Computed example of a mutant assay.
Amino acid sequence: MTTHVMLDLETMGNGSNAPIVSIGAVVFNPATGELGADFEIVVSLNSSAYYGEVDASTVIWWLQQSEEARHIFAKDTKTCTLKDALQELNGWLADIDRVKNLQVWGNGSGFDNVILANAFKAVRIKPNFSHWNDRDVRTIVEMGRSILGIDPKTTFTRQGVHHSALDDAKFQAQYVSAIWQSFIVPTPVEVKA
């Protein structure tokens, strides 16, 4: 049995060692689109930057985002260290399913999952997911566009705050599920006389 988890990170960089400032994740069933348990945590930038590489262009990009998205940097927002955040994520994943059953989806084969794996390595914690079960959102979106001629990423109405890790994870799970379901719906075969 497979358990699908959609992951989204908000970071202060775009490289493989970008400092993580928030983590959002949601369990989902791509065959039905149903969303399940979710997880969200905000990471102290001071803690995360110690282990990562801050990118100036990303900092400038964040300054241009909505007030709701930038709330994770507000003085009154509860944050934790990177190590504590990853331990909490690990505990949440362990409660959901066994390591071998978890398929963790990230947006880009070289982004979310890679950054998260590098963060685990930096704080010397073994993640409760395996790299061989990484799944890529951008690949399935391209398959939907190129093979099926659909693009729910751009046609679905988005709920929540843009660049909220949890809201982004939920939206990604919704459009990945729509593409997945389009692949499994039987297509009528045209019979030629």
Score class of each variant (00 low, 15 high):
T77G: 04
S48N: 07
N128S: 14
A169L: 08
L89D: 05
L102S: 09
L45P: 10
L148S: 03
D167T: 01
N128A: 15
G149N: 04
G108H: 02
I41M: 04
L102A: 07
L93V: 08
D134G: 15
T58K: 06
M1S: 12
T32H: 00
E88A: 15
E40H: 14
F73K: 01
D151R: 05
A169Q: 02
H4T: 07
D76H: 09
S109A: 15
H162M: 07
F39G: 06
F171N: 07
T32I: 00
N128L: 14
S146P: 06
D167K: 06
T155C: 01
F171Q: 04
D134N: 13
K121V: 08
K153R: 10
V191Y: 06
F28R: 01
Q87H: 12
A85M: 09
A193N: 11
A31L: 07
T77I: 10
D84A: 15
E67S: 08
V161F: 06
Q64T: 14
A178N: 01
D167S: 05
A85T: 08
A173R: 04
I20E: 08
L116V: 09
G24F: 07
D8S: 10
E40L: 08
V161Q: 00
I147L: 12
H131P: 13
D95H: 14
P188I: 04
W105L: 01
E67V: 09
Y50P: 04
M143I: 08
T2N: 13
H163I: 02
D8P: 06
V43D: 03
S57N: 12
V176F: 03
E142T: 11
Q159Y: 01
E88C: 15
V176H: 00
R98E: 13
V43H: 04
K83N: 11
Q103V: 15
K121F: 15
F28N: 01
I125S: 09
A119L: 03
R158Y: 05
Y50E: 11
V26Q: 06
K126Y: 15
F156A: 03
T3L: 14
L93G: 08
D97Y: 07
K170T: 04
T11C: 13
R98D: 14
T3W: 06
I179F: 05
E190L: 15
V26N: 02
L82S: 12
E67H: 11
A49N: 12
I20T: 07
I147G: 00
A25I: 02
F183A: 00
W61K: 02
Q103P: 01
D112R: 00
I72A: 03
N101E: 13
V185K: 12
I41P: 05
I60G: 00
A85R: 03
L93A: 10
K83F: 11
Q64H: 11
C80H: 03
Q181D: 02
D168R: 08
I60S: 12
R135L: 14
R135F: 09
S16A: 15
L148E: 06
M1I: 08
E142H: 11
V99T: 11
S164E: 03
F129V: 09
V99D: 14
I72K: 12
V27W: 05
I41G: 04
G108N: 01
V191I: 07
K78Y: 02
I72W: 02
I140K: 00
A193M: 10
V43K: 02
N128Q: 13
V26S: 05
P186E: 09
N90H: 14
A18E: 05
G52T: 01
W105F: 06
Y51A: 11
D8Q: 03
T58E: 03
T157M: 10
T187P: 03
N17D: 13
